[in-house]
């Protein structure tokens, strides 16, 4: 499968999805993203951080210092209640968009 470019706005949604599964530090978010997208998304790794900071600034994520698997100080992100709500809304509207787009593009010649 070809490595797709990221649609605008999708990175934030994917991060919310990744973090919704449990508290993660930045590097783990990256790994989780690669895992859940099957490696289909390619972003420069550093680009993750401005997005994380933005989501934290908006109050959707909460960050706390903790210890990583190999006992190093790392910053762990969790979803705030507002973030959870936003995630559900965005996910729902994304699904709607996808199904509408799919239906539209599947329309055959004799269905018009």
């Amino acid at each position: 499968m070809e490595r797709g470019t990221l649609l605008p706005g999708t990175l934030d949604l994917l991060i919310l999805k990744a973090v919704s599964l449990g508290p993660l530090h930045g590097y783990a978010v990256l790994l989780r993203l690669q895992q859940i997208t099957g490696g289909a998304l390619a972003i420069e790794q550093g680009a993750l951080y401005p997005a994380l900071y933005r989501l934290e600034h908006q109050g959707l994520l909460e960050a706390k210092w903790g210890l990583s698997e190999n006992n190093r100080r790392a910053r762990f992100y969790t979803l705030t209640p507002a973030g959870r709500k936003r995630f559900r809304e965005e996910a729902a509207s994304w699904s709607t968009l996808v199904s509408v787009m799919a239906a539209a593009l599947d329309t055959g010649k004799n269905e018009v």
Partner: peptide, 15 residues
């Protein structure tokens, strides 16, 4: 904190 966080990422990736 920001410097720490970014260098943690690079270290983790290198590891």
């Amino acid at each position: 904190d920001m410097a720490d966080e970014l260098s943690f990422h690079v270290d983790a990736r290198a590891a």
